[in-house]
Design a protein around this nucleic acid. Structure first.
Lengths: 349, 349
DNA sequence: ACGCTTTCTGAAAGCGTTTTCAAAAGTATA
DNA sequence: TATACTTTTGAAAACGCTTTCAGAAAGCGT
């Protein structure tokens, strides 16, 4: 008996169980029946040897990676935690591994390995993280992909999971107008390439129009989905003397920056200016005043993305478009009153 | 010419460039010099064929996965976003892939593939996510691991990255006592097995002692690192008639729950009760009143963890213990005054 | 032009599984 | 008991790269 000190392989197990490696492989994968006595011997040998199959060898031989990739533009904000949570849970449940790439640091020089056909079985792609060219290439070779919060080019047939941005925005603006008589409502756009933002703006415009308010381009500015950027933008707006009585921030993070800028300028929220956000991140109800916003089922979007991706991977027909329901959450930053802080808004409707 | 329609392999490239596959491999990896003309031919062939090497094959042949794993107990709270961000950035910069596993869903039945020697080159393990047995096993085979916020058993020689929990807690409690004359300070423990919590409690006790205040077990309760749990605990404390004039919540998330419970009970913060947190998550300054807390360099902890792991992977001597500096951030929830909301507390000192 | 290094190169041997194929062993039917 | 299937099984061929080894080519001093 050679006392090689390297980790056991399937061959060692086979030898010990007195079967062929093919048989070991079969009990490992459980797809093909194996005689109970042999199967037991194999299992015992695996246990004794503490054998763990090498992933790489399996992947190479089976041409399946057992891995799902998530591609993000960046990891930041309160938004990503629930989303990751949803995706991770879904992937785990499906028995896959979870590889994550963020594009945030396009380090000079290091072009960094692409996630794609050769290292994953499918990709979940968040808006703004993969260019059309790569998307097209992957689609052409029929590689499973789902898009998050991004409509694909018409020519590509890629399932999309997103939320009701437009109607959410409409609810918000409707409420500002109808509930609080606001007329000059600033809209803060999200970051470039972030599709949520364009839908929200569309909802904003339609609501305006429905109430006979003419759209004023002066009232649309860029806020990013980021409190600092929103802060700066609102300061600038005030400096320029633009008049407004409400702000629809691109998302909740931006709304924070808006409120800070307003407070600094001595404008009272919601007395002088109503502020509303989007997403209903956990902290929205803790800020002062508590933020009126749209509840987005972020974690479920992640789960649903995995679910559709799995259909694709398993050759089933996926839903072309999954639109997750959003919901108006009235708190105080719009001008509504609320006796006390209510329990958390529903995460699992 | 056979028109096989499968993705090109290194052999196809070699054939096209009229060199051996060994040479292609060499230009791919760049470790061994190759004649410039051949190298150019190879690069051209790769480009034309759109060749991408199969990760699995490389891993199998080289016995290196090029992947780092992160093991977490769960993905939640405002804490994880910056941490993930730091880890991801570090791993990317080091040219590795990033596999993430969370233990949150120990789905019945699905024991789920372990992250370990066979699918990663090293592991970053967050407190509470791997049991001693597995840790010991991995350590015995000399597998690169760093621990986050958790001291390893003495027998194991595993590098640790953590933050100055104890001195941070001391600063906080010192301030509560010296700055605001508080004497009956509640301490809310974090979740079971979370080491940060025990250090914070130690700091709490030492500060008490240093000020001649006797420790009262009645004032220590469990709050989780979670606003709902903290909320419930504070409600209970009030119901039981426990008297206190300050609360040191386990972390900022818990502090939110504390403030909500207090508000609901009609206790004013900070007039009746001072509240302080720990971590300085981005929202800490936006809540009402703005939260006094300890700033923890979470993202840097993530980066540093990768950095130490890389030393281990590359056979260099790592730092046995990396203690990241924390800093007191005075806002209003303790009773301090602040004229206006200040810009973000420093994330990159 | 001749040895002696040094630098490049290709053939071939792995790396550790899965999977195909055909043979062996069982089972049910006649 | 023989025949025709149906299960189980093992041998061996992939899977697509890296790496070792030895030989070829090139550089260099004389």
């Amino acid at each position: 008996m050679t006392t090689k000190n390297r980790p056991p392989t399937i061959g060692d197990v086979a030898q010990r169980a007195k079967v062929s490696i093919a048989t070991v492989s079969r009990v490992l994968n459980g797809k093909v029946p194996v005689a109970p006595d042999k199967a037991d011997r194999v299992r015992a040998a695996i246990e004794e040897l503490q054998f763990v199959p090498r992933t790489a060898a399996r992947v190479l031989a089976s041409r399946k990676t057992g891995t799902v990739g998530l591609v993000l533009p960046e990891i930041s904000g309160a938004f990503f935690s629930p989303m990751l949570r949803g995706v991770e849970a879904g992937i785990r449940q499906a028995g896959y591994d979870f590889l994550i790439h963020s594009m945030q640091t396009t380090h000079e020089g290091i072009p960094h390995r692409q996630l794609g056909e050769h290292n994953t079985d499918g990709l979940i792609v968040f808006t703004g993280s993969l260019d059309i060219k790569e998307l097209t290439r992957l689609n052409r070779i029929n590689f499973p992909i789902v898009l998050l919060h991004q409509t694909p080019p018409e020519s590509l047939n890629i399932p999309v999971i997103t939320i009701e941005n437009k109607s959410g925005a409409e609810m918000l603006v409707d409420h500002l107008i109808e509930g609080h008589g606001r007329r000059r409502i600033v809209y803060l756009q999200g970051p470039e390439g972030h599709e949520d933002s364009v839908w929200r703006e569309r909802g904003y415009r339609e609501s305006l129009e429905a109430h006979g308010i003419t759209f004023d381009p002066e009232l649309v500015a860029t806020g990013g989905f980021d409190d600092e950027e929103a802060f700066a933008t609102i300061q600038e707006l005030i400096l320029e003397g633009v008049e407004f009585d409400a702000v629809f921030a691109g998302d909740d993070d931006a709304a924070m920056g808006v409120m800070r800028a307003l407070k600094l300028a001595g404008r009272l929220v919601p007395d002088d200016v109503s502020v509303v956000g989007f997403d209903d991140i956990p902290f929205a109800r803790y800020v002062s005043p508590p933020l009126t916003t749209i509840h987005a089922p972020i974690e479920e979007v992640g789960r649903e993305a995995v679910s559709q991706l799995m259909r694709l991977i398993n050759g089933q027909q996926p839903e072309a478009l999954t639109l997750m329901r959003t919901e108006l959450v009235l708190r105080e930053s719009c001008g509504c009153e609320s006796g006390e802080i209510k329990p958390a808004s529903p995460m699992d409707p």
